[in-house]
Design a protein around this nucleic acid. Sequence first.
DNA 1: CGCTGACCCTGACGGC
DNA 2: TGCCGTCAGGGTCAGC
Length: 270
Amino acid sequence: MPELPEVETTRLAMKHYVQSRRIEQVIVRDGRLRYPIAQDLPAVLRGECIDDVQRRGKYLVFSCRSGDLLVHLGMSGSLRVAPRGTAPSKHDHVDIELDGGHCIRYRDPRRFGLVLWTPRAADHELLRDLGPEPLEGDFNAGYLADRARGRKTSIKSFVMDSRIVVGVGNIYANEALFLAGIRPTCAAGRITKIRHQHLVRAIKDVLRDAVTAGGTTLRDFASGTGQPGYFQQKLHVYGRAGQPCLICKAEIKSRRLGQRSTYYCPLCQR
DNA sequence: CGCTGACCCTGACGGC
DNA sequence: TGCCGTCAGGGTCAGC
C-alpha cells in the first residue's frame, strides 16, 4: 500500500493526535508480523510519552522518552486514530491506547509490516543502510549518476532500491519515469547525466504532488483520520495499460520487471 | 559485488 | 454460487 507520500500523510495525521501523549496501554491481538512482535512490547511501552512522529523512507518513528517505536506498513498496513473502546475489526493487530481518549490502531491484512521498540531508530540495522531522502538536497543528479555507474539493472529497479534512494515504490517509480521520458527497462548505468537530472526532478515533483494530494488511494489506503488520497486522479501510466497516453495518445504498455508491474508510454519514453 | 527469482501473507477480482 | 488463477502500493534471502 504505502509509498513515501502515503507514509508521510499517515505521519502528519498521527502527529496531530499523538504528540505529547502518554501511552497507557498496548494491546497486541496478533503479533505475527514480518518480525514477531516482542512479548514484552506492552510492558515496555506503558507509561512512555510520545515526543514526536518522524519518518525515514517508508518507516515511521514514534520517538519516546526512552526509545523509539519503529513501524513499517509493508504492503497492506495502515495506522488509524480511533476513539478508545471502538470495536476492532479483522486484521486490527495492535492498539496503542493514549491518555486523552484516543488510540492508535495498527491494521495489516498481509502482515508484511513491523512494529518494534529500539533504543535509537537511526542506529537500527533496518535504517542504517538506507539511501538519502528523495526530497532532500543530497538526492541529486550527481549522486544518482555516481551510484548508477556500471550498473546493468533496469533504471526502474534501481530507483526502487532503498539503498539508492528511499520511499520510491512501484507507483511513483512508474510515474517519475514517465515524467522524465525514460523507458523503465533502460540500464541504469547507461543513463546520461542530463537524464539523471530529469529523473531526479521528476521523482521530487511526483512525490511532492502526491504528498499534497494526501497520497494515492487504489484500494484501501486512507490517512490516519480515514481520509482517502486523491493522487490516483493524476496518474499518467500506473494501472493504465491499453489506455491512451494522456500526452500523445499512444497505447500505454505494461510488462513485468523485477516481479513488479511496469507501465510506460512507448512514444514518450525512450 | 550484482542480479534474478522465490518467498512471506491475505484478500479482491475476473473467468468459467 | 463457487472454484481457480492472478494480482496487489514492501522487503529479504539464497543461489548463481
